[in-house]
């Protein structure tokens, strides 16, 4: 355990001492928040207003709460994955600059080394994404606060779980990388593409049927949905309280992916947690197995 602890400490320290890597990870959620508020806020607002029956008057605070909940959930859904990738690039950098060789000439077991990268990435990702969540919560207090204490706790749980998922996905993908060029390429692809396939930039509900079925197989879809549910549930309840018809509210939930469907069947919140958790366990298992196989191959 001491070995794992010391190696994890080394990895975490390196991440926080690498100003480029740390700063990029830290500012990404903040930049996303500013970009979302600036460019998507009005679009989301108009979309929501168009879904409310014309006969109903609704306060600005509720609309701002809806828009804020969607922005915050989108930012967190993307950040948990991109920050994990950014943090986990240390593993690739170690290969690129030869440090990995210095580690593997020692008798340390490959699963200890791989776990140390995983745990360090997880710690860094959770620290940064939990900070991002706190900033988002502060934003919501100004935009329109409808969260209960349990919603806030569940948002933290979601961020933790998505950080586990992001770390697991990045561990498996980064395992195959070994150069700075590959780091840049994968970083760019993930930053640009992940937001679309997890439904953060555009609701999955707006995708075609085929594409909806494909993304329903991906764990990120449910991560976004969990965050949406916990960031927006309070404001939806308030809408019902002020008299908006339940059907209209349900339709709105569908349109922002609070309700997601797996081949036509609505997926319950508990099933989303189970699906993401099982995916994390499977990916961590694959990651450890890949490292063990590599180590075995090298020693033959």
């Amino acid at each position: 355990m001491n070995i794992l602890f010391t190696l994890t400490k080394r990895n975490v320290k390196l991440f926080f001492k690498d100003k480029g890597m740390f700063f990029t990870s830290l500012v990404t959620p903040a930049i996303l928040l500013v970009l979302y508020v600036t460019f998507l806020g009005n679009l989301y607002r108009d979309t929501f207003l168009s879904q409310i029956p014309a006969s109903f008057q609704i306060s600005d605070k509720i609309i701002n709460g809806l828009v804020g909940g969607q922005l915050v959930s989108s930012i967190l859904a993307v950040s948990c994955i991109t920050v994990a990738f950014c943090s986990n690039f240390l593993m690739v950098q170690d290969k690129a600059n030869g440090t990995a060789k210095d580690l593997t000439i020692s008798p340390v077991k490959s699963h200890i080394l791989s776990l140390s990268y995983y745990i360090a990435t997880l710690i860094s990702t959770i620290l940064i994404c939990a900070s991002a969540l706190i900033i988002c919560l502060i934003y919501l207090t100004f935009a329109g606060w409808y969260l209960t204490f349990s919603h806030v706790i569940l948002l933290f749980v979601d961020v933790f779980l998505l950080s586990f998922l992001g770390t697991a996905i990045s561990s498996v993908i980064n395992f195959f990388l070994s150069t700075q060029g590959q780091i840049s390429a994968v970083g760019t692809i993930i930053s640009a593409g992940y937001g679309f396939i997890c439904g953060a930039y555009m609701p999955i509900y707006s995708f075609g049927d085929g594409l909806q079925k494909v993304v329903s197989l991906l764990p990120g879809t449910y991560g976004t949905s969990l965050l949406r549910n916990h960031a927006m549930q309070g404001v939806f309840s308030e809408m019902v309280n002020v008299g908006i018809p339940t059907d209209a509210v349900e339709q709105m939930k569908n349109s922002v992916d609070c309700n997601v469907f797996f081949f036509g069947n609505k997926v319950e919140i508990s099933s989303m947690y189970i699906f993401i958790s099982v995916t994390v366990i499977a990916l961590v298992g694959i990651y450890i197995m890949l490292n063990a196989l590599k180590s075995k191959k090298a020693s033959k």
């Binding site: 001491n2 070995i3 010391t6 190696l7 400490k9 080394r10 210095d102 580690l103 020692s106 008798p107 340390v108």
Partner: peptide
Amino acid sequence: ESRAALYGITG
């Protein structure tokens, strides 16, 4: 410290 840990040398 981190390299010593690789050989189980800690504390």
